[in-house]
Design a protein around this nucleic acid. Structure first.
Length: 394
DNA sequence: TCTGGGGTCCTAGGACCC
DNA sequence: TCTGGGGTCCTAGGACCC
């Protein structure tokens, strides 16, 4: 495919405690203090990111906010300000772009860069310096010849460091690490591997492939694990990967028993998903419904339409269909909507197909939202999204 | 202390077609 | 009167990532 990407050095650049770092940057009083960015502690919120000061108390990402406050009562809790983080993220990517055009952004705070073979470490130093000087943000970088080793090097470099990891270091550095360090080996895989006495990456590397198949679930998964454990990774950088789905979901602060209320929420979620599709010039062929129950079990249903749509009404009708057919037993803890099978609109516009009445009103509503914010306009049934939005606005 | 929200990818079974 | 085999699409669930 891309000739330049063969035999390059690969960098994984990862902004440290990104959301918390941005908050500390924007409000210097927060520097050196335990900052926890995430959901509402009174409303089943969890930690999205926390500063290293908060980590000293044992606070971690994905931890319930209540627990985080238990561990660190002095924590400064802030809501997620995604608009601001996206803005800063773009500035960081702009800096990366001065060093190489070959950038795969994997998330808001992480990107793989391909640079000329042999220049990885030097480039990493320059990039880290530029990001710190110009934006005041700490950045960790892993340097290697493939994505896997760059990623692991970066996790060893954190916080705020640079580390190289080459194939000749695999035995000494990679093999003693717990299997959990391998990307793709999450809690479930880790538990299964441990049950077979495989604790370290080295033990995994020397485990027979055949026996690994039953543990990993498939031949493909087993082969990939073995490759990774040996430090090999043939994945290329994906430079033009487009988005594949758009979703919105909400966890209620208390479980909901009323079907009518769920429908009201679905109406707003559908409007939100529709708006996001239109503002990106996209349409979706498949609409999905997600329900979560008090026992945390999840049910998903989806339906593929004859024609792609970005219309609030059509999305709403589809999910009502799905909900009517299989809503399970109340109460519900979460509802969500996903639009997938995305296609580009022929002409970029916020005007959807659909019935003529809708065609007239939707662009006006979209324009108002664009100008005054997402929450500016509601059609028909305005709902109280419990405390989610109230918390967001403060 | 009681488990978010936004995504990606994989598997497996059934329908359907040739 | 005993039903192949490959390919694709759709759907549901689950693991995983940040």
């Amino acid at each position: 495919m891309n000739k330049r990407l063969i035999n390059n050095d690969i960098l994984l650049c990862d902004l440290d405690a990104f959301f918390a770092s941005v908050e500390q940057l924007d409000n210097p009083e927060l520097k050196g203090r335990p900052v926890v960015v995430g959901g509402d502690p009174d409303s089943r919120g969890v930690v999205s990111t926390c500063s290293y000061e908060a980590r000293q108390y044992g606070v971690r990402s994905a931890m319930p906010m209540k627990k985080a406050l238990g561990l660190c009562p002095g924590a400064i809790v802030l809501p997620v300000n995604m608009t601001r983080y996206k803005e800063v993220s773009e500035q960081v990517i702009e800096i990366f772009g001065r060093f190489t055009p070959d950038i795969e952004q994997v998330s808001i705070d992480e990107a793989y860069l391909a640079v000329r073979a042999g220049t990885g470490l030097e480039t990493a130093r320059k990039i880290r310096f530029a990001v710190r000087e110009e934006l005041g943000l700490p950045l960790s970088i892993g340097v290697s010849i493939n994505k896997l080793l760059a990623k692991i090097a970066c996790s060893l470099a954190k916080p705020d460091g640079i580390r190289a990891l080459y194939p000749e270091d695999v035995e000494k550095v990679l093999w003693p690490l717990p299997v959990r360090f391998l990307p793709g080996a999450g809690p479930v895989t880790e538990r299964k591997l441990n049950a077979f006495g495989i604790k370290t990456v080295g033990e995994l590397a020397s485990f027979p492939l055949e026996a690994l198949k039953s543990i990993a679930g498939s031949a493909a998964a087993a082969a990939e694990l073995k490759e990774y454990a040996s430090g090999r990774d043939s994945r290329k950088l994906e430079l033009n990967a487009g988005r594949k789905s758009i979703s919105e979901e909400i966890t209620f602060s208390q479980d909901i028993h009323e079907k009518d209320y769920i429908l009201t929420v679905l109406f707003d979620l559908a409007s939100e998903v529709g708006y996001r599709l239109r503002s990106k010039g996209l349409k979706a062929r498949t609409v999905g419904l997600k329900l979560k129950f008090p026992d945390l079990s999840i049910k998903t249903r989806s339906l593929t339409l004859p024609e792609a749509t970005a219309s609030d009404e059509k999305i709403f009708k589809s999910v009502v269909d799905l909900f009517t057919r299989c809503c399970g037993n109340p109460p519900w803890r979460l509802v969500g909507i996903r639009a997938s099978g995305l296609e580009r609109e022929r002409q970029l516009s916020l005007i959807p197909g659909g019935d003529p009445g809708e065609e007239k009103i939707t662009p006006v509503l979209d324009m108002l939202r664009q100008r005054y914010g997402r929450d500016a306009v509601f059609r028909g049934r305005r709902l109280l999204l419990l405390r989610k939005n109230d918390f967001k606005r403060n």
